[in-house]
Simulated scan of single mutants.
Amino acid sequence: MKKIVFFTLLALFYSSTGWSQSADYQQQKAEKIAKGSVFTKIINRELPADIVYEDDDIIAFVPLRLQAPVHLLIVPKKEIYTINDATAEDVIVLGNMMLVAKRLAKEKGIAETGYRLSVNTNEDAGQSVFHLHMHLLGGEKLGQMVGAEKQTDEK
């Protein structure tokens, strides 16, 4: 019985101290979802965008704030809030997002030199638009990933 109480208290502690989204973030997220995503507005042509690719399921465009010489957003037209909300029904569109990224990287001349694909999910990753999207970044040597340490041959 003591173990059950301990693990229940431990779970409550972690859920309230950093293993969940902050109350402010949860509120902002709920408000943004209720309002509708800026990406849906681009898809519906309610907002302008520099669209570089579009098919029945996916749209890709240049973001307002570039983080690299080549920076594109690849967005499913289906509104999926986060990768955590993706279902088995979304497998094909998720795979096609990768193939669109490959195609655009080749078109932009960065397929051979290298590029990064990034999907931010929720608070700790800095997700601010709640419509799943993938960043295609390249055109220069990109920095190390967060927390990556230099690897050496020394042992």
Rank of each mutant, 00 (worst) to 15 (best):
M98C: 09
A86V: 09
M145L: 15
P76Q: 06
L73R: 01
Q21W: 01
I74F: 08
K29P: 00
F7E: 05
K78H: 10
L117H: 03
V5Y: 08
F130W: 10
Q67Y: 01
E46G: 09
H135K: 05
Y115M: 07
K41P: 01
W19A: 10
F6S: 03
G18M: 08
I59E: 07
E89G: 14
L66R: 11
D57H: 09
A148T: 13
K141I: 09
L47Q: 13
I83A: 12
G126E: 07
R103K: 15
L9A: 06
D90I: 05
G147W: 07
A101P: 02
P76W: 03
I42H: 11
K3Q: 09
S118R: 12
Y81K: 12
D124G: 11
G114V: 11
I33N: 07
K108Q: 15
R103Y: 11
G139N: 02
E79K: 10
E140K: 14
L117P: 03
A68I: 00
N122P: 00
Y53Q: 02
V146G: 05
A60W: 04
F6K: 10
M98S: 09
E107K: 12
K108C: 01
Y53F: 14
I80D: 04
I58V: 12
S15K: 13
Q21R: 11
V129C: 11
T87S: 15
D124W: 05
V119Q: 06
I58Y: 05
T17Y: 06
K2E: 11
L104T: 06
A101D: 08
K35C: 00
K41G: 02
G138S: 05
T8K: 08
A86L: 07
K2V: 05
I80F: 04
L9T: 00
L64E: 09
L12Y: 02
S128N: 15
I83S: 12
L142W: 10
N84R: 11
Y81N: 13
F6W: 06
N122W: 09
T8S: 13
G139S: 07
I110T: 03
Y14H: 04
L142V: 07
K3E: 13
K155G: 09
A60I: 09
T121V: 15
G109I: 04
Q27L: 13
Y14A: 10
Q28R: 14
I80Y: 03
K3T: 10
L94N: 07
L73S: 05
A111T: 00
G147M: 07
I58F: 08
V91S: 13
L94C: 10
A88Q: 12
S15T: 12
D50F: 02
L9F: 12
S20H: 10
V5P: 00
S16A: 14
Q27W: 03
K102V: 07
G138C: 04
V100F: 10
V5K: 11
L73W: 04
L66K: 15
S37Y: 06
P76N: 06
R116G: 02
F6E: 10
V70M: 01
A111C: 01
G126T: 12
A125S: 15
Q28N: 13
N122Q: 15
L10R: 00
A34Q: 14
F13R: 00
P63H: 01
T17N: 14
E89A: 15
